[in-house]
Amino acid sequence: MLHRPLLFSLAYRMLGSVHDAEDIIQEAYFTLSETSIEQVQNPKAYLCKIVTNRCIDLLKSARKKRETYVGPWLPEPLIIDTEKDPEQNYMMKESISTAYLLLLEQLSETERAVFLLREVLQYDYEYIAEVVGKSSTNCRQIFHRARKAVGNHRASDQIPTPRAAALTEQFVTAIVSGNVNKLLSLLAVDATLLSDGGGKTKAAVLPILGAERIVRFYMGILAKFTEDFSYKFTTVNGDPGIILYVENKVFGVLSLHIQNGLIHQIYWVVNPEKLTHIK
């Protein structure tokens, strides 16, 4: 599957789902295998078109389900290990952070497709127009509108710096030891915690705003946590994070968005349906 990294990069950014992205890619290659060579002059472009349109269809069909989702919605965590899987280097060329994917959620299905095809894959407007069924002029307008909505967010700290990794270790250690003062020193005053349980497990159904409230949240969890647990540090969507295990099973994935030496956003995914691909 020569173009798989590129196709996964597109599908995952469109959907925020590892499972759905992989399923759509498999379907695209199957469609290609069933198509005569005469009909396909450019396999890469053909596959991108299939993947883009399947993603648009899936997003439209999932819209109502997303509207009734319990609590904050976060993308399925993507565990980045470029040493074990060099193909994932492709994912790191542009931002794949949770913050970036949440910005893309502001866009309609077509806006997201046009934006990613242009911004990430660098396709010209004539090709994008063919993919999404709009004129090239319209696609140009859609792109500029989408870019304005997303802002100037670019890939940053794609591979956590030693300082960011050290700060993450300090954060986790402070939680486990119940060191309130240390936690407060690591968090920005206006830090935000988003917790995604999807109604499947206990999680905060509203964003938790402010360092002091976040600390109280974690201290409350720690007081009730009696199970055998362990964790490992990793890279989640290009940001430093951890995988938490309870009785040797994946329980949750946490990632931190760090700016100017402080934690500004915490993303906590505990919806079991979003963790089945993680070991």
Score class of each variant (00 low, 15 high):
234 T>G: 07
35 T>P: 03
146 A>G: 13
173 T>Y: 11
3 H>S: 11
144 H>W: 13
232 K>T: 11
233 F>M: 06
53 N>E: 07
136 S>I: 06
100 Y>M: 13
12 Y>T: 07
107 L>H: 02
151 G>H: 12
107 L>V: 07
54 R>L: 14
125 Y>T: 08
44 K>A: 14
41 Q>H: 12
148 K>I: 14
42 N>L: 12
238 G>M: 01
10 L>V: 08
185 S>R: 09
129 A>G: 12
187 L>S: 00
233 F>R: 05
6 L>R: 12
16 G>R: 10
147 R>K: 15
168 T>V: 08
73 W>M: 04
266 I>S: 01
209 L>F: 04
226 T>H: 13
226 T>L: 11
58 L>C: 07
130 E>Q: 13
196 D>C: 08
22 E>V: 03
217 F>C: 00
246 V>D: 01
38 E>A: 15
141 Q>P: 01
214 I>P: 07
229 F>E: 03
223 A>D: 10
1 M>Q: 10
107 L>Y: 03
46 Y>P: 04
271 N>C: 09
134 K>W: 10
74 L>D: 00
190 D>M: 00
273 E>H: 05
185 S>I: 08
71 G>F: 02
150 V>H: 00
96 I>M: 05
176 V>L: 13
116 L>C: 04
52 T>H: 00
55 C>H: 06
141 Q>A: 14
86 P>N: 06
70 V>F: 01
102 L>E: 13
200 K>D: 05
123 Y>Q: 11
268 W>N: 11
124 D>M: 09
168 T>S: 15
67 E>C: 02
163 R>P: 00
168 T>N: 09
278 I>C: 04
13 R>E: 10
114 V>A: 11
219 M>F: 12
197 G>M: 03
35 T>F: 05
272 P>L: 10
108 S>I: 08
175 I>Q: 12
230 S>N: 04
234 T>D: 04
90 Y>P: 01
203 A>S: 13
165 A>M: 14
111 E>M: 12
144 H>A: 13
5 P>L: 09
214 I>D: 00
184 L>A: 03
266 I>T: 06
254 L>E: 11
71 G>N: 02
19 H>I: 14
211 A>E: 06
216 R>L: 14
84 K>A: 15
231 Y>K: 04
221 I>F: 03
274 K>M: 04
230 S>K: 02
235 T>F: 04
188 A>Q: 09
220 G>N: 14
135 S>C: 09
38 E>F: 12
120 V>E: 02
48 C>S: 02
21 A>S: 15
187 L>R: 11
17 S>C: 13
132 V>P: 07
172 V>Q: 14
57 D>M: 08
246 V>Q: 10
66 R>L: 15
37 I>S: 13
122 Q>P: 00
138 N>Y: 09
109 E>Y: 08
163 R>Q: 15
138 N>H: 10
142 I>D: 07
133 G>E: 07
120 V>D: 13
250 V>E: 00
135 S>L: 08
253 V>D: 01
71 G>I: 04
148 K>E: 15
141 Q>S: 15
55 C>D: 04
74 L>K: 02
52 T>N: 00
69 Y>S: 02
41 Q>F: 11
154 R>H: 07
266 I>M: 10
30 F>R: 15
40 V>R: 06
242 I>L: 05
12 Y>P: 04
50 I>W: 03
48 C>L: 14
94 E>F: 12
6 L>M: 13
98 T>S: 02
86 P>V: 08
28 A>S: 14
216 R>Q: 12
230 S>V: 02
171 F>L: 05
222 L>M: 14
188 A>W: 02
65 K>L: 13
